[in-house]
Design a protein around this nucleic acid. Structure first.
Lengths: 334, 334
DNA sequence: CTGAAAGCGCTAACAA
DNA sequence: TTGTTAGCGCTTTCAG
């Protein structure tokens, strides 16, 4: 391909020094208006684009933030990415996004790539497989500013933006029980993930309070075939009359399997969980759900990261964003 | 923040020259195994990450591909991004993703950013506002390899990966009419977008063939409130008995509005359109849909871009991927 | 097998 | 107001 045009190209073409061209393109003062105009015109004519890479090399600051998500298709993540990007842009930062595909190895690789690209900070959500924090501790040790969101590692040293997972799950569980459900199942993921642990905790609390027996089925996030877990729920000896799912893919998978197995929702089983408002509306069934504050999570994460990057003192370690339980979208119990 | 460790740091720490360190880390030959081991160990100990930015500066090849999508939340795009990333990675390329937020200005800005970051090529889908190709022609003129997908500009000079929009829409429309629908509306977007034009064309063809009158309502993509368009459809003098939507947000918006307005789907109106299989399944209504081949689109786009980057001769200008009409997901007409 | 030096595109300190 | 020079982190001749 044709090479990118450089300052030198403009300089030679105009019989000027590179530094003059450089200044003409940035400093206002100390360059004669005439030269400035000639340089700018020539730059435009040649299609000059400043090499951010080279600039970053000097400034030792690329103004790039790395974002690592478990996957792109889950609405929660794409929505959070949107929020992160908008807010970062408004602060003059670019973002580089990568997906770990829910894989530990790919997460390690992703962090590595980010560092090679000299990002100034990382905002990330752990992969489902991440139960070992070695790579995160190493990352932390390099002094790289990192903010974790949603699925975050345990430990005082990490900066996190979380959701009120326990409270949200308690509210949702309470709702189900108030609706007369007595056999409530939770489809969860690996317990080493904070979100699973917290939500399981909230769920257990409420069930115990009502003297009911908790029952948790485990599945793999990101594995788009949750048929097995769904069957486990469907084929339980003592039938469940309600289920809580941890995310959209799980919930959708369950719905699809139930439909295949001719289980009627919500008549036979009330399905609920953590999904977004848009899809909750179009499912056309009564699906009580926890609406996650992706806009806020993204914004808080960026703010926090920038605070760390700009070396502000006393950045709070842990932030919690409030979710919203929605049980009745349009006033009727569809 | 702590600075990234450089070759120089390793060199001084080991009393070696920078070039020796550089070679030890890459060349196998021409460096004594002993030194090589010392260097590698020290690099690991110090947490050295090669500066891709600096390497790119020399090689004049960053191995980075820029991807520009209209938004992140539309499943079609997130799914295509996933495909692009997987395939690009397998070829040793990284990707940088940006969203134009369906805005022309942001698209121009996005292209600019990509060039400043010295990507080696761009894969993009036009924003809904893009009816002027000046910036694309300028981009093309720089010699930058570009592949457009889905929404693509007109013109022999552009490389594109499209879908069989016309055929797909014809099939879908035929299906609706065969089902006895006579008043079929199409909710479309700006006609300067190829996808809209093609789909409108296919739709018209079929309606004319059956002596029916076409009726197109226009809306804005990415505008998450399509209430107006929905109302226009609902309040038409002569009631529609079927609607075709161009993408998921439109279709979902219509469904939501219809529900608010107490229109029953599919009893009163059969809603159909371009959405993904996963969501088509969970809508729990009979929604005939066109399943778009995002995996293939992503893969073809990357292959094509790499071919252009690697300066292969005779790269085909236009590729068309086949979609799949799905009218009956699980064998019953729900 | 190893080091010195030049140069990728750019900025910044120092001269002129 | 402009040019010269050095240097950001790295690779790559060219010497030794």
């Amino acid at each position: 391909m044709k090479k990118y045009v450089s300052l030198k190209d403009i300089a030679t073409s105009l019989n000027l020094s590179v530094s003059t061209v450089s200044r003409a393109l940035r400093d206002s003062y100390s360059i004669s208006p005439a030269v400035k105009k000639r340089v700018c015109d020539e730059a435009k004519r040649l299609g000059y684009k400043p090499n951010l890479i080279a600039q970053g090399l000097i400034a030792n600051a690329t103004r790039i933030i790395g974002v690592i998500v478990p996957d792109y298709m889950t609405y929660f993540y794409s929505s959070t990415i949107h929020s992160i990007e908008s807010f970062a842009r408004s602060k003059g930062y670019q973002i580089i996004i990568t997906s770990s595909c829910e894989s530990y190895d790919r997460e390690v690789e992703a962090i590595n790539n980010m560092m090679c690209l000299r990002v100034q900070g990382i905002i990330m959500c752990l992969s489902q497989e991440t139960d070992d924090y070695t790579h995160l501790k190493e990352l932390q040790a390099t002094g790289m500013p990192v903010v974790f969101f949603d699925r975050v590692p345990e430990g005082e040293e990490f900066y996190t933006v979380e959701m009120d997972d326990r409270v949200a799950t308690k509210q949702l569980t309470e709702y189900l029980i108030e609706k007369g459900k007595r056999r409530v199942a939770l489809i969860s993921g690996p317990s080493y993930l904070n979100v699973c642990r917290e939500r399981e905790g909230g769920y257990r609390e409420v069930l115990e309070k009502y003297g009911l027996e908790p029952s948790i089925v485990y599945t793999c996030f990101g594995d788009y075939d949750i048929k097995e877990a769904a069957d486990a729920v469907i084929d339980a000896d003592e039938k469940y009359d309600a289920v809580i799912c941890m995310n959209d893919t799980t919930l959708y998978g369950l719905l699809i399997r139930m439909h295949e197995r001719k289980i009627e929702v919500p008549k036979d089983v009330l399905v609920s969980g953590f999904i977004d408002r848009l899809h909750a509306q179009i499912i056309y069934l009564h699906i009580p759900f926890v609406d996650q504050p992706t806009d806020e999570i993204g914004e808080v994460a960026v703010k926090k990261l920038l605070a760390i990057i700009e070396d502000e003192q006393r950045v709070q370690r842990r932030d919690v964003c409030a979710s919203c339980l929605c049980v009745d979208l349009d006033g009727e119990n569809r």
